[in-house]
Design a protein around this nucleic acid. Sequence first.
DNA 1: ACATTAAGTGATT
DNA 2: AATCACTTAATGT
Length: 211
Amino acid sequence: MDLLRKNYAYIFEDTLLEEIEKVGTHKSFEEGSTIIGVNSKILFMPLVLRGAIKIMRADKDGDDLVIYYLEAGDTCTMTLSCCMGVTKSKIRAVAETDVDLLMIPVQKMSEWLRRYLSWQEFVLKSYDTRFTELIETVDTLAFLKMDQRLLKYLKDKAFVNHSDTIQVTHQEIADDLNTSRVVVSRMLKVLEKEDKIILSRNAIKITDFSA
DNA sequence: ACATTAAGTGATT
DNA sequence: AATCACTTAATGT
């Protein structure tokens, strides 16, 4: 599988890559489809081959908010923390774009941890980056105002989609940030006046990526 | 032309 | 920053 080698060849040794190819099953999801729901059991750990996944945390009222994005070369840390026992997921994973995943049975996790140094490093590195990302998100929530959260959201979204133009409605943004559409519209208007973005129906073009 | 959906705005809490 | 109520604009049928 060339996508696997393209994204992971520099991370894993050949013998591990071969084993991944042997036990992994390929899965594709369309944009917008739910990959992992809240409370669903995690039996496979996904390696992202192509596209991006939006990881969200849902509160008890069913309001969710975006925590971070996964891209090609990433894996879901929630799965990693679940590999010890069969735990239920505390998050929701939604396909941000069309995605290709390689599903690895979780039993292989611990086995590979012992046998492959590169796997060990990959898992630890994933933990490190996701944890850092989580802390950043907490900072954003705790200390940044909505306008800065919005700007970060736009830039993150543009990044994972490899485009400076984002296709979304104000309502969808409001849902992702857990705020109201009116607030999003007003703040976008301000950002437009500051020449940081260009607004149009169902699309936002980012013109200023600084700060 | 009409209905539907997205976006803009003032006023109020 | 949220909500309401309403307007205006864009798009689909």
